[in-house]
């Protein structure tokens, strides 16, 4: 290569070409003309990368804008407070009444319950897979967990209402009976025996978000630098102490991100909750044994009303809230992760 280039360098016009030592820089005619080299491949790829970046920002803005524009006329025509009311009556376009409050409660309650159940279990599975399971077992086991993520949510819905809900009824009744003094376990606005409660929905959602939280946490835990692990062990740490001093701090940010991914999925989950939650117009008791609908499942339930732009706008307004909610959740997750950046 080098010898082939030499004659070209030598003929580079009147430029101050340094005498060629074996390690010396190789000047080319382009440098002599003092114009930076532009390779078509570089430009093409740069263009493609910038374009993709712009595209995704534009897409998100467009979705947000679409939701906002479609929602504004309906919000204007709304007869009740959108954020302060729980009434949802959109049958008549001239007397629109839609409030997000109850939907918001059911959405947040199911998702937070799911997260509370799934987070410790995922942590346990991820640590088991990365640091306890024998290598031969870890791989197939991880595969099975991943497979859980591939199950369509309609299947989870069917399983949830037909199998899990009846199974959970005794548990729910026991909780209600023994812990009923805590508002969250008090009677809700639907029957506990029916099973179509926030409680059942939360458990099903927990199963649904388990794989994503586990998979992401596992990847992060696996990347704990070997020297940190050995450093802890060499100091006389037991396995658990080693996990606590190296793997968990190292993976914490990733674990929180994983949980937020799971929460995002739970907040937006539609079909499973559409099947599970018992519809009701009653005021929620702020209990795990409430029924109702989440924002997403309410929108699915209202699909028949989308032919009228004003009615559809009411659902779109609800969708906008869900959109913002996931944004806020993501922002919070980032803040949590960035909080300890100095130690990253």
């Amino acid at each position: 290569m080098r010898t082939a280039l030499r004659p070209r360098a030598g003929s580079g016009g009147g430029s101050a070409t340094a005498p060629h030592t074996p390690e010396g820089p190789i000047s080319t005619p382009n440098i002599a003309q003092s114009r930076p080299v532009r390779r078509p491949g570089d430009r093409l790829f740069r263009g493609a990368a910038v374009g993709s970046g712009v595209f995704i920002v534009a897409l998100i803005s467009a979705i947000g804008l679409f939701l906002l524009l479609q929602a504004i006329p309906s919000l204007r025509a709304n007869q009740v407070g959108f954020l302060t009311s729980g009434v949802w009556n959109t049958t008549s376009a001239t007397d629109l009444q839609f409030g997000i409050l109850y939907l918001l409660w059911v959405t947040v309650a199911t998702s937070v319950l799911a997260l509370a159940l799934a987070m410790p279990i995922s942590l346990g599975i991820a640590l088991f897979l990365t640091h306890y399971a024998p290598r031969r077992l870890a791989r197939p086991f991880a595969y099975v967990v991943d497979l859980l993520a591939a199950v369509p949510s309609i299947i989870f819905g069917l399983w949830g209402i037909k199998v899990l809900a009846p199974t959970l009824v005794p548990v729910a009744e026991w909780l209600n009976h023994n812990l009923g003094f805590i508002p969250l376990f008090a009677e809700g606005n639907v029957t506990i025996a029916g099973g179509g409660t926030v409680f059942t929905a939360g458990v099903v959602l927990a199963v649904m978000i388990l794989p994503i939280i586990t998979a992401v946490s596992r990847e992060v835990f696996e990347r704990t630098p070997r020297e940190h692990i050995e450093g802890a062990l060499a100091l006389g740490a037991t396995k658990w102490e080693m996990l606590r001093t190296t793997v968990l701090p190292f993976g914490k940010a990733g674990y929180v991100s994983a949980a937020m991914l799971g929460l995002g999925r739970a907040l937006g989950e539609t079909v499973a909750l559409y099947l599970i939650l018992s519809a009701t117009t009653a005021v929620p008791e702020l209990s795990f044994f409430d029924g109702g609908a989440t924002i997403a499942s309410k929108i699915a339930l209202g699909a028949a009303e989308f032919n009228n732009p004003l009615t559809a706008g009411a659902y779109i307004a609800a969708g906008l809230v869900l959109f913002l909610l996931t944004f806020v959740v993501n922002a919070l997750a980032r803040a949590v992760v960035a909080g300890k950046k100095e130690y990253a």
């Binding site: 630098p225 450093g231 130690y343």
Partner: peptide, 9 residues
């Protein structure tokens, strides 16, 4: 160890 390995957190 060969590479300095203070606990980063």
């Amino acid at each position: 160890f060969q590479r300095p390995n203070p606990f980063p957190t």
